[in-house]
Design a protein around this nucleic acid. Structure first.
Length: 161
DNA sequence: CTTTTGATGCCCT
DNA sequence: GGGCATCAAAAGA
């Protein structure tokens, strides 16, 4: 939105049977979007100060993919202004940072990804690698973190391939 | 470079 | 009342 965007280079998968998932305990008002139709956005507040965004996945009700990092390709100046003039590789290298750079907040919760202000484009990434998840207190070892190998825009480097 | 710690708001039980 | 899918700053090596 606002002409900003980038390539998704890092994600994490969440499944309703995954203890770390917000949907694991069952439907609640907060995670209702994740049980809704796929290709919608689920936004929640993390640690009271940050926003994190997920794409609702259609495979099963309650599944979603957390967007952990972007490689900024458009609206760099806008992002930089919003993020406090950091180097490009720090603009979107993390769930909270990414949402700040894109100005994603609860206002976008539940919106469809197939309509403005969003525009998803399919693209072939480079080599994709998987690894253990990050920042979780439960089931962090499950290797459901995916990202582009060697990208300089990851929140953290992946373990050796 | 590394590790540690505080800030902070909302959801759930 | 407890917990949390985070970040940035500070301090030490």
């Amino acid at each position: 939105m606002d002409g900003v965007g980038g390539r998704i280079v890092e994600t994490e998968a969440y499944h309703p049977e995954d203890p770390a998932s917000h949907t694991f305990p069952g439907p609640t008002p907060r995670n209702a979007v994740m049980f809704g139709p796929p290709a919608h956005l689920y936004v929640y507040r993390s640690y009271g100060l940050h926003w994190c965004m997920n794409f609702v996945c259609g495979a099963e009700p309650g599944g979603a993919v957390l967007i952990r990092a972007l490689e900024p390709t458009a609206g760099l100046e806008i992002m930089r202004a919003r993020r406090g003039f950091e180097p490009a590789r720090a603009l979107c290298s993390g769930p909270g940072k990414l949402c700040q750079a894109l100005a994603v907040t609860q206002a976008q919760n539940g919106l469809s990804l197939e309509a403005p202000p969003f525009a998803l484009r399919e693209g072939r990434a480079g080599a994709v690698v998987a690894g253990p998840r990050i920042g979780l207190t439960k089931a962090a070892e499950v290797p459901w973190r995916f990202g582009e190998a060697g990208s300089k825009f990851l929140s953290r480097p992946f373990p050796k391939v």
